[in-house]
Amino acid sequence: MIPESFMAMGTSVSFNKTTRNFIKFPSEIRKKFDVYLKTRVKDRARKFSYINEAYTNSKNILLNFDNFSDKIFKQIFKPKIKKREIKKIVKNIQNNLKEVSEEYKELDIWLTTIHESFLSEPINPIVYFLAKKHYILAKIAINSVKKLSEDDILKIVKSISEKSLKENSEWLIVGVFIGLEPIFVSSLIIAGGRRDYDFISSYNNLINRYLPLVSRNFIEDFLKETEISKNIYGIDAYHKFVSELQVDRHERCLL
């Protein structure tokens, strides 16, 4: 059931015609930083309104995420799909996944550029951290779906029933959330620039809700992806940390 929910990533592209444009966003937003300098006036105006529209839309989605995800996954996963439709759906999912994973390659480069410059640029570090976390989520999800063959996907789509949807509704929402990654991350960067703390904190809440859920269930993938187990400082570092914390707390008591 879990990879099945991640397939929402593949299908999310088709839930709304305009989203197809949104999915292309990371590269557009990447240009936003020098858009004012490099592009012509006409182009700039068009791009700006484009970016603005995506930002307003994703803010609306973010603030009413529960309602939105409920609607979306009902659209994506309809129980009792006709046989004719199944093949079409499988093809759609596979094509969309290809597109999405190519976007992620680009996003990877994009994130590293931010990371090197984010302290000199006025980007809020939490924006970077959130983007990175969402990106890790998406990578884990894409890899888990990619392992499936066409037959596996066919089986999963066939087995969708109203009961299975109800039982796994939380996972389906996770799938929708991950699928929205390119739109959300792009808008998050803008929110950071605009100091839109409402946006950033609601985003933080969603990541806080879904990241532990995925990292718990894909613990090996998560550790591998983040290389957490590589950075071992040892028990001596811990002892020094503890003694410093004690001194620090003592100082606070004296204040």
């Binding site: 951290f129 990175k132 532990p212 957490i228």
Partner: peptide, 9 residues
Amino acid sequence: QTFLGLFRE
């Protein structure tokens, strides 16, 4: 921050 991915705040 990546380590915090294991935790819920």
